[in-house]
Simulated scan of single mutants.
Amino acid sequence: MSDTIDLLLSRRSVPPFALHEPGPTEDQIRTLLTIASRVPDHGKLAPWRFILVQGDDRAALADRLAEIALADPSADAQRIAEDKKRFATPLIVIVVSRAAAHVKIPEWEQVLSAGAVCMNLITAAHSLGFAANWLTGRAAYDPSAAPALGLVEGERVAGFIHIGTPEAPMPDRPRPPLEEIVTRWSAP
Rank of each mutant, 00 (worst) to 15 (best):
L8D: 03
D57E: 14
A71H: 12
W108R: 10
R86V: 05
F87M: 03
L7V: 03
A187H: 11
P171I: 08
A81M: 07
H42L: 07
K85Y: 04
L91I: 01
A71W: 10
F130L: 11
E21V: 09
A125Q: 07
W108F: 13
V152W: 15
A148M: 02
D57V: 11
M119W: 10
P47H: 06
K44H: 15
F17C: 13
T183K: 14
C118Y: 07
G43Q: 02
D57M: 14
L52G: 02
A18T: 10
E109M: 09
I122P: 01
D63K: 11
P176M: 02
S97C: 10
M119C: 08
D142K: 03
V182I: 08
H102I: 06
E67M: 06
R175S: 06
G55R: 07
A36Y: 07
H102F: 04
S13F: 04
P171W: 12
S144Q: 15
I92W: 00
A116E: 08
P166C: 10
R49N: 02
L33M: 06
Y141D: 10
F50K: 00
G159P: 03
S13T: 11
T31N: 10
E67F: 03
L8P: 04
L19F: 11
R58H: 05
T165R: 11
G129Y: 12
P22Y: 06
F87L: 01
V157A: 01
P24S: 06
G164K: 14
G23D: 05
A36Q: 03
P40H: 08
G23E: 04
A100V: 08
L61E: 01
A168T: 11
P177R: 00
I80D: 09
P73A: 02
I35C: 14
I68V: 09
E21M: 08
M1P: 09
P188D: 12
V157I: 13
W48C: 06
A88I: 05
A116I: 10
D6T: 14
L121C: 04
S144K: 15
R49V: 00
D172R: 15
E26R: 14
G159D: 01
P15I: 14
I105S: 07
D142S: 07
A71I: 07
H20T: 15
P73D: 04
A36H: 02
H126P: 03
E107Q: 14
Y141N: 12
A71G: 14
P90W: 06
D172A: 15
E153T: 13
A60R: 15
D57N: 12
R38L: 10
D83R: 06
A131Y: 04
G154L: 07
E21L: 06
L178M: 00
R86N: 12
R175Y: 05
L7C: 07
R138P: 08
L135F: 04
P171C: 04
R30A: 14
Q54V: 09
I51C: 00
V152A: 15
T165E: 09
